[in-house]
């Protein structure tokens, strides 16, 4: 019996001098992997335009049906994104999301990005539905609008306009 006791105490003693695994969680956060998949964000190009074009591919890729996208036409005077289309409503239900990252993979413009933030707990179900206000990153990213992909949208063009104007301008 004594031997067993000594063995147990020995383990404890040995562990006492090892590197500590316990983190003082709210004050100290765990190091996350480079590709950790946490809360989503919708990124902006360096010029401030949203990268999301409202194509709904994330919505159809989502195996948990957590994403809802409603697209609309950009206001030519005050565009949200390059080109004609943007997502005027974008919602992710974080309670449904399984953080598989398929949405990120489906995104043709690399607008959707799973950040490393993971503290999503809250008190109501409604507050877990993230809208554009919480998803769209307020800051710009280093991405540049790709050339020759999104022609600038100036609203619907009349059928018979002077085509020479563009080249002259």
């Amino acid at each position: 019996m004594l031997r067993a006791l000594a063995k147990g105490m020995g383990t404890t003693l040995r562990m006492l001098f090892r590197k500590k695994q316990t983190l003082k969680y709210p004050f100290v956060k765990k190091e996350r992997a480079q590709r950790f998949r946490g809360r989503h964000e919708l990124r902006r190009y360096e010029n401030g335009l949203e990268m999301c074009i409202g194509c709904e591919l994330c919505q159809v890729a989502c195996p948990a049906a957590a994403i809802t996208v409603m697209p609309a036409q950009n206001d030519p005077e005050n565009p949200n994104s390059p080109g004609e289309r943007y997502a005027y409503k974008y919602e992710i239900d974080m309670l449904r999301c399984i953080f598989c990252g398929l949405c990120e993979e489906a995104c043709p413009t690399e607008a959707l990005h799973l950040t490393r933030e993971f503290e999503l707990a809250d008190f109501t179900r409604e507050s877990h539905i993230y809208g554009r206000d919480r998803l769209v990153n307020r800051h710009t990213s280093p991405f540049r609008v790709p050339e020759n992909v999104y022609p600038p949208f100036h609203g619907l063009r009349p059928m018979h306009e002077d085509r020479g104007e563009e080249t002259r301008a």
Binding site: N148, R157, P158, M159
Partner: peptide, 18 residues
């Protein structure tokens, strides 16, 4: 080489965008 550029979102008539 780059693709041909033509016009997008042309107002074709009452209900149609070309």
């Amino acid at each position: 080489v780059p693709k041909m550029k033509k016009r997008k979102a042309v107002d074709l008539g009452n209900f149609i965008v070309l």
